[in-house]
């Protein structure tokens, strides 16, 4: 059964920014968009497994730091190649200033 995991403080992430979140053997990114929405996706780009923690967040998209594939953080959908596969996304909620991710 999926659990809500306390990932970080909401204030740990700047507006339009991203941080890495590791849980067990898995790695994710938590993204905050320009309207204070929080998203969680797989941490590794689907093109060549580069971590997205150094990527560029614009509104609710994240651009891979290696070859610039852009993903929609709310759906995980890849918007520009070279990546062709979507990212997995995970539900998030913010409570008492903490970001929780359902894994």
């Amino acid at each position: 059964m999926a659990d809500w995991i306390d990932a970080c403080a909401a204030s740990d992430i700047d507006e339009e920014d991203v941080i890495r979140f590791d849980h067990g053997s898995r790695t994710f990114v938590i993204v905050r968009d320009h309207q204070d929405n929080y998203y969680c996706t797989d941490g590794l780009c689907t093109h060549e497994d580069v971590h997205l923690e150094d990527g560029l967040v614009v509104e609710a998209t994240i651009e891979c730091p290696k070859h610039s594939s852009i993903f929609d953080c709310s759906t995980g959908e890849v918007e520009t190649p070279p990546a062709c596969e979507n990212l997995h996304t995970y539900p998030t909620k913010v409570e008492n200033g903490r970001v929780f991710v359902e894994l």
């Binding site: 093109h47 060549e48 290696k66 070859h67 190649p81 070279p82």
Partner: peptide
Amino acid sequence: PWCWKYSHARHHS
């Protein structure tokens, strides 16, 4: 455009 998009991605990898 497509071949060179991927060729250049490889050049960076």
